[in-house]
């Protein structure tokens, strides 16, 4: 079951129990359906997990983009992983607040993206106001490492990526564009 919500449930989040930590590990290790080199934990979309009773667990996911079609697959994959781990009643809640930013991608996630041939997003430091980060700053080619790259299109194979070309090795590549 997927439900929508504005944000975290009321009240301060409590320290996760040992079981919750274990289940977070299970849910967090599910691969992203569109970028299978990354896990959901590395992408930073897993917002929380609460055990509500024996075999009952609620997971909070945040979408990278509101229209990201991967969210439903992610939810189904998380449900399956937790079921295989003995949870019989798994619900997934989509939360929008606070909005996901590319700063939520872990250092290991960035390394894997580059290794996969996708230029990782540059850290933004959470600039206020949101919006496109100046695209003139150098983006490094994930193949040859050159910073002499140009933007071909602001949108690439998915909404979260832009298409660039390297002037040194002449190869086009995807850049996971910054979202602050």
């Amino acid at each position: 079951m997927v439900t929508r919500g504005a944000g975290f449930p009321a009240g301060t989040p409590e320290e996760p129990t040992a079981l919750e930590k274990e289940l977070l590990g299970v849910a967090g290790s599910v691969p992203d359906p569109e970028l299978p080199v990354l896990t959901l934990a590395e992408l930073g979309v897993l917002r929380g997990l609460h055990v509500l009773g024996p075999g009952r667990v609620e997971v909070e996911l945040t979408p990278t983009y509101t229209g990201c079609p991967a969210v439903e697959t992610m939810s189904a994959d998380v449900v399956q992983a937790l079921r295989e781990h003995g949870m019989t009643d798994v619900s997934v809640r989509t939360v929008l607040s606070p909005p996901w930013t590319t700063d939520a991608i872990t250092a290991e996630g960035r390394r894997k993206l580059a290794e996969f041939g996708i230029a990782p997003p540059r850290p933004t430091g959470g600039a206020p106001g949101g919006g496109p980060v100046a695209v003139d700053l150098a983006v490094r080619c994930p193949r040859c490492g050159s910073t002499d790259t140009t933007l071909l299109s602001r949108f690439s194979s998915t909404a979260c990526k832009a298409l660039r070309r390297c002037a040194s090795c002449r190869e086009p590549f995807d850049h996971f564009k910054e979202l602050t």
Partner: peptide
């Protein structure tokens, strides 16, 4: 709160749409 959360999320996406249209 839910509408405000959607707006805060969507404004980042729309900034790219506007940027695309401007270029």
């Amino acid at each position: 709160g839910e509408l405000a959360a959607l707006a805060a999320k969507a404004v980042k996406e729309v900034a790219y749409h506007r940027d695309h249209a401007e270029h």
